[in-house]
């Protein structure tokens, strides 16, 4: 056997959008040989998930099922997929680049003497896999030498596909896993501190990044936010430093927002930040670096020193409102 496989990921019994994007990426690879990818669902009870997967644009669905595959552990997933790969010899395995995949796919790859080509944003002819380097400031083109090739795709990089009309065939694969192989003991997921601000419903947001340099400079952006009547938000380093509470963090590990106006001040535009705000209706970026990736998603940009631009903007907003 050979072919293209795509591992779908569910949370509480539902696939995330990124799993469907992974199917789209897998279809790009499968199209090279005129075939369709096989979807893989993993868990202790996968019947309903498999039925849903079968309606997507895939040729087949495989349920990798074992009681020890729930809850998720890297040992369980790596062992199950390793056995499946040994049995099926796939050419390509595509994953969504989620936190869970980051946790087990590199271990799986290492067991196969391979690496994960991770966080891929584009697949070009060859195939050539393109991913970001230097925090988004450069792109790297990677070629796989040998097989199988393990690839994970970045959230939002591929367009999730529509469902197909006749459901795909479903088969089951039962791996052999012993309880002793699972060395870590995961606890139940829990929420961080009680959320008291709901950035998700804010019509306007002024977000501040590391360009602000010091905590004592935060009043500059607070003034701008106040003049607009906007909520204040931040990139991760600001919250890591404890300058603003974590509930104001926007991005993959914080909140996802889509306001009418998002003003990014001194934020470079790392992908983990962008996924949390790129759905905003209008994005304004203020950054001294004309090459900063934030300008990739901005509608309006001011290239300049925020310590000059932000106070000027606050004044201009105030006088416009008079």
């Amino acid at each position: 056997m050979s072919g293209v496989y795509v591992v779908l990921e569910d949370r509480n019994g539902r696939f995330g959008r990124i799993s469907f994007e992974a199917i789209a990426a897998a279809n790009i690879l499968a199209a090279q040989s005129g075939s369709k990818p096989t979807a893989i669902v993993i868990g202790a009870q996968t019947e309903a998930l498999a039925a849903e997967a079968a309606t997507k644009n895939v040729g087949k669905v495989v349920r990798i099922e074992h009681a020890l595959l729930s809850p998720y552990t890297p040992d369980g997933y790596a062992a199950a997929l390793q056995q499946f790969i040994a049995a099926e010899s796939p050419d390509y395995i595509v994953f969504p680049h989620t936190y869970q995949v980051r946790d087990y796919a590199p271990a799986l790859a290492a067991r196969l003497g391979r690496v994960l080509i991770g966080d891929v944003t584009q697949i070009a002819d060859g195939p050539v896999f393109i991913r970001s380097l230097m925090q988004g400031r450069l792109s790297g083109s990677y070629k796989s030498t040998g097989g199988p090739t393990l690839v994970s795709v970045q959230s939002g990089a591929f367009r999730a596909e529509d469902a197909q009309s006749s459901p795909a065939e479903i088969t089951t694969f039962a791996p052999n896993i012993e309880a002793s192989q699972i060395r870590t003991k995961p606890g139940e997921p829990f929420r961080g501190t009680a959320q008291t601000v709901d950035l998700g419903s804010a019509p306007m947001i002024v977000a501040v990044g590391r360009g602000i340099r010091e905590e004592s400079n935060l009043n500059l952006v607070q003034d701008l936010a106040a003049s607009l009547g906007a909520e204040i938000a931040a990139s991760r380093p600001i919250c890591d430093n404890g300058w603003l509470p974590i509930e104001r963090q926007v991005g993959s590990s914080g909140q996802t927002v889509a306001p009418k106006l998002y003003v990014a001040v001194g934020i470079s535009g790392a992908i983990q930040h962008l996924v949390g705000m790129k759905g905003s209706q209008c994005i304004v970026a203020i950054n001294k670096d004309a090459e900063a990736p934030i300008f990739e998603v901005a509608d309006y940009g001011i290239v300049g020193d925020l310590f000059e631009v932000v106070p000027a903007l606050t004044e201009a907003v105030k006088s416009a409102k008079l």
């Binding site: 050539v128 988004g136 792109s139 790297g140 990677y142 070629k143 030498t145 040998g146 990736p293 998603v297």
Partner: peptide
């Protein structure tokens, strides 16, 4: 297993 073949400037999208 994965060779970095080429480094380029990112493509501008918007």
């Amino acid at each position: 297993a994965a060779a970095l073949d080429k480094i380029t400037q990112p493509q501008k999208q918007k």
